[in-house]
Amino acid sequence: MHYKKSFGEKVSTAIIYMIIIILTLAFLYPVIYCLSMSLSDPDLLGGQPIGLLPKGFSLEAYRYLLSSSKVFRYYGNTILYAGVGTLISILVTSLVAYALSISTFTGRKVITVYLVITMFFSGGMVPLYLTVQRLGMMDTIWAMVLPGVGAYNVMVYKTFFRQLPSSLTEAAKVDGAGHFRILFTIVMPLSKPLLATMALFSIVGHWNSYLNAVLYLRDSNKHPIQMLLRSLLISLEMLEDKDMGAIAEQVTTSSRTVKGAGAMIAMIPILCVYPFMQKYFAKGVMVGSIKE
């Protein structure tokens, strides 16, 4: 389209770009602040505010944290919960969504209603807590990974599976392939964008949550990295955990640089991965919004 841009049009374009640039800086600033804090020289920093750049330069905070075996244990726990939780949720969700995507499946209606009810009603925090407790899952990985299967995701998967071209699955059926084989060798490989998105969301969810650990894990050896961050970054009156209390106490006496470094260490893996998944999750979010 060729048309002359009026003066007003040009001004409005300039204003829009200005707003966008300011917003972008606002999105970035806290993370830059955190990075600068972590790289500052603890003696120069003291309690002073940071503008943009680190005060002095030191990797002392990173050295301190990475030399502590506890940090690796918390990190390992997080990776374990995120990995196992994501695998279970993708597997279980794919299985049920595949069954529901078959239009001749006799149990389709009943199971759909059974799932949808849970999207509108829930028992709430206390009954769920008591259920987990009664099942003997306190202080086990199962409390962290099993409650993650939700009806909403099933609907998203089902919608996606339905949109796949049926010619391939038909051909496999003619060749005598069973449902499991069709799901694992045809449907799931074709659904990579969806599965990648869901895996990312699930990993990020596990990576960044701390509340389930507060509720279900008494044993600090099993705590995820966010619990360490909580005691590092946020002074809490109810810090029952002595291990972390010790690390946190040293930090307040030593410096804020360790706070920054702790946050960076926890953030970096996710921040490095998500930009590459972007083209997938834009699609994934859309699939979720299609109503049936």
Partner: peptide, 20 residues
């Protein structure tokens, strides 16, 4: 195939609902 999800939803959604 639907069974694992049905069981998990039962345990972590319906049992707490009953617990209400």
């Amino acid at each position: 195939m639907a069974l694992p999800a049905v069981i998990l939803i039962f345990v972590f959604c319906y049992v707490p609902m009953y617990g209400v």
